[in-house]
Write a protein that binds this DNA or RNA. Structure first.
Length: 302
DNA sequence: CTCGATCCCTGGACGC
DNA sequence: TGCGTCCAGGGATCGA
């Protein structure tokens, strides 16, 4: 469930609480979600967490410094990549505090605290990446939705024949958008999730990018959505779930037109939309044809 | 290129 | 209360 706003919330929290700390030791539990567990144990002790950034739905803990004063293999620029999956939590705790079930990684820090990774379902991912392997890893992902320009976004939409919902979820096209924010932005932009991306009008494409960016900014301001068990580094839930207009609202009235929100599987995911505001592909096509016949001046007059 | 299906995993909701 | 069953979801992978 952690998507861009939730990951941004955690990354900012970690930047404030653990940036600048040195990792003293690493203790691993279950490791099936870690690319190369031995690499963590080998390369992390002695390194400093220089800063914490978000990259799509990943957190990037930038590492610096040397191991016991020796020249560092992997060198500066190496990073720890963390994906929270569905149920991942990464936050600092006092070592005195007993650690909960499903705590799979513990990083002892030089101030006596411990950075803990807890993940019941282990849908997350963790990997140590040396500086030289970082570009290839990060290069697999598409543009940041908050940074993409209007031109880039419309080009992206135009070049994909998949459903718009599938495109929004495609991390190689756009990094960081998940099911919640895809549905919320489609609702705000009044676009049906099953529409073919390439068939959106230029105006729809503009509206979608705007809606997506507004929603992501609003959600970040409210520290994300806590629908199951998302918590920030201080253990506080987010508040954006209160603003959801489509996601999780099956059969509830649309905030714009009171029509019951519908749920359908699109791109393999539960998708929530208003069947009246968000016209299905065929109806949208007819509506577009009607608009084409009527000149803008006529429309203004009627 | 794009699709759906399947798997991974556990907790929570629900029915009986 | 205690089962069994279904569902949630991101991403990898595979065959159509």
């Amino acid at each position: 469930m952690p998507e861009l706003p939730e990951v941004e919330t955690v990354a900012r929290g970690l930047q404030l609480t653990v940036a600048g700390r040195r990792i003293v030791s690493v203790t691993l539990g279950k490791t099936d979600f870690i690319d190369d567990p031995a690499a963590l144990e080998l390369h992390l002790p002695g390194r400093f967490i220089e800063r914490v950034e978000r990259f799509g739905k990943f957190m990037l803990l930038r590492l610096s410094g040397t191991q016991n004063g020796a020249p560092q293999t992997g060198g500066p620029g190496s990073s720890l990549l963390v994906h929270l999956g569905m149920t991942g939590h990464l936050s600092p705790h006092s070592v005195a505090e007993p650690f909960p079930k499903h705590t799979h990684v513990r990083f002892l820090l030089d101030d006596g605290r411990e950075l803990r990774y807890t993940d019941a379902r282990r849908f997350g991912r963790m990997a140590y990446l040396a500086a030289e392997s970082l570009p290839a890893e990060l290069g697999r992902f598409g543009a940041d939705p908050l940074e993409i320009s209007e031109q880039e976004f419309s080009a992206l939409v135009k070049s994909h024949k998949s459903r718009i919902k599938a495109l929004l979820l495609d991390q190689s096209a756009l990094r960081g958008v998940g099911n919640i924010y895809a549905d919320e932005s489609l609702w705000r932009a009044k676009i049906h999730p099953m529409r073919i991306a390439a068939k959106l009008s230029p105006n729809e494409s503009r509206k979608l990018r705007k809606a997506l960016q507004e929603i992501l900014h609003e959600a970040i301001a409210l520290r994300g959505s806590s629908i199951s068990d998302f918590l920030d580094v201080e253990g506080r839930p987010g508040e954006y779930q209160r603003r959801h207009r489509a996601y999780g609202r099956e059969a509830k009235p649309c905030y714009r037109c009171k029509t019951p929100i519908r749920r359908a599987i699109v791109a393999g995911r539960s998708s929530y939309f208003c069947p009246k505001c968000q016209l299905a592909p065929k109806s949208a096509k007819r509506a577009a044809k009607r608009r084409k016949r009527v000149t803008p001046r006529h429309r203004a007059a009627s």
